[in-house]
């Protein structure tokens, strides 16, 4: 019993330090928990209003085929025959010939709806987020095409690799329960 009561100096210092360190750690974590935590997860997303379509998304994502893909707000689209997102500015002809396409992977599908309207839809398997069509649609169109990080592909890195390389600071953390910055109203999760 007596040995229990007389703690030697080394043990005392060790115990005191342990209590001090746990108080520091606990205090810091408690402070963060109380003031700086929302208690919910975040994911990365592109703000289409800030995006300048520089093409960095396509090459800097940790995924070989970038997690960024073009999405289409169909209710914003004008369904034009001469689509700024589908055809390059000096297209030879307005048809689906490979030489007339702006998209490098032919990921945009052009379907005739009725005179004079055409539907443009994105094949996400082929799209890699280069943003060429987005730039075209913004220059000559309604900006219905825009880039978004696809959360079924995104790894949700601690620091987003494309966010780091974005010149327009367009990529930021958003709450995971509201993970997209969308245009238009026709949306399905």
């Amino acid at each position: 019993m007596s040995s229990k009561k007389s703690i030697n100096r080394k043990e005392f210092i060790s115990k005191g330090s342990r209590i001090a360190v746990s108080l520091c750690l606990g205090g810091m974590c408690g402070h963060i928990l109380a003031n700086r935590s929302v208690g919910r997860e975040t994911v990365w997303q592109i703000d289409p209003a800030k995006c300048v379509q520089c093409g960095n998304c396509a090459i800097n994502c940790i995924h070989t085929q970038s997690a960024v893909r073009c999405v289409h707000a169909f209710d914003v689209c004008g369904y034009c025959n001469l689509c700024g997102g589908y055809f390059p500015p000096a297209a030879n002809d307005l048809n689906t010939g490979a030489e007339n396409l702006l998209c490098p992977t032919a990921a945009i599908k052009r379907t005739f709806v009725e005179e004079p309207f055409f539907e443009y839809s994105i094949n996400k398997e082929l799209c890699f987020g280069c943003g060429k069509c987005v730039k075209g649609c913004a220059a000559f169109g309604n900006s219905s095409l825009y880039l978004q990080i696809q959360h079924d592909i995104c790894t949700n890195c601690n620091e987003c690799a494309i966010g780091r390389s974005c010149p327009a600071d367009a990529i930021s953390r958003v709450p995971a329960n509201d993970p997209y910055k969308l245009r238009g109203n026709l949306i399905k999760t």
Binding site: N142, H151, D152
Partner: peptide, 27 residues
């Protein structure tokens, strides 16, 4: 603000597709 071209009104029974937004399974 966005519409440089008017949004079309269709005569056929075409309905506009939805934009797919896969949700994160990370939660």
């Amino acid at each position: 603000s966005q519409d440089r071209f008017p949004r079309p009104e269709f005569d056929t029974d075409y309905s506009k597709p939805f934009t797919q937004t896969p949700s994160p399974d990370s939660l």
